[in-house]
Amino acid sequence: MNITYEIIPTEKVESCRDLCNELMVFQKSKAYIKPELFDHMNFDTRMIPSINGAIHNFIVVVKDEDDIVGYVYSNISTKETYSNDFATFFDLSSVSGNNVGCLSQFYIKEGYRQYGVGSTLFNMSMEWLKQFDDVQDYFIFVSNGNDDALKFYKRKGFSVSHKILAGFITVLRNNEEHS
């Protein structure tokens, strides 16, 4: 294993297409509440609209030699971005500023988990998010059934705020006073 991390510009996001689609299949395989909602979620319906709707984007790919084996996508968006036809992800009035940070997508191929890759990606994302002085609220949305991800983010200091869509998604937040 020869693991490297590369921050890529949004113009190169196409390199995440297969892993993003793999993430949606993985989430569906774990889900016990409305797994069919994942049938219409893929790179084109999740990643591209999120990138286009964000103010700032941050994408890191993990490579083993030339193969991309994981990625993380974080963004800064207006809080209104998270109230749409699909769901209202949090109480907009609970956010102190106009913008929020979100660790939006996070996926590591099976054989590369448990080697610290996830912690490295998480730390890179948090460092990037924290450089925006006007953003104090960070969110992570975990699909139902993905208990390992939920435990991981709790270990990293996030706490469960609430659930949306009848438990389909658990909303985690960095700032415990909002829970």
Rank of each mutant, 00 (worst) to 15 (best):
S161M: 14
I68S: 04
R113E: 12
Q105D: 13
L19A: 03
N99W: 10
A166Q: 13
E11T: 10
K63N: 03
A166E: 12
L92E: 12
Q136H: 14
N42R: 11
F38Y: 14
S93Q: 09
S15I: 12
D134P: 09
M47H: 06
G145R: 05
T120V: 13
F58I: 01
F58D: 01
T81W: 09
Y153A: 02
C16R: 00
M41A: 11
E36M: 11
D67W: 09
R17G: 00
T10C: 08
L19P: 02
A149V: 03
T81M: 06
S161Q: 14
N52A: 10
F26I: 07
Q136K: 13
K79C: 06
N174S: 13
A87G: 04
N52Y: 08
H40Y: 15
G53C: 07
E176W: 13
D137A: 02
A54Q: 10
V25I: 06
D67V: 07
F38C: 08
S179K: 11
P49F: 04
E110Q: 09
I55S: 06
D18A: 11
F168E: 11
N75H: 14
S50I: 08
M24G: 06
Q136F: 15
T10Y: 09
T78H: 04
K34M: 12
V60C: 05
I7C: 06
V60L: 00
N123I: 10
D44A: 08
N2D: 13
E6W: 11
N175E: 14
G167R: 00
G145F: 07
T45I: 13
L121I: 07
D91V: 03
S104Q: 07
M47I: 15
S83T: 13
D39V: 15
S104Y: 08
A54W: 11
E110K: 08
K63M: 02
Q114M: 14
K109G: 03
T10S: 04
L37T: 14
N174G: 15
I55F: 12
Q105R: 09
F89P: 12
S159C: 15
I169G: 01
T45K: 08
T120C: 11
L19M: 10
E80I: 15
G101I: 04
R113Y: 11
M47E: 07
Y5Q: 07
S77K: 12
K151E: 13
K63P: 06
T170H: 10
V171W: 12
K34R: 11
H178C: 14
Q114S: 11
I169S: 03
I3H: 00
M126C: 14
A87M: 12
S104K: 07
R46I: 12
N84R: 10
I7H: 09
I169P: 00
V100Q: 02
Y73L: 05
F58E: 03
Y153D: 01
T81D: 07
S74D: 02
S159K: 14
V62T: 11
K156M: 15
F86Q: 13
G145W: 10
S96N: 03
K151A: 09
N21R: 08
K156W: 06
G101F: 02
S119K: 14
S77T: 15
T10V: 12
F141R: 07
I169M: 06
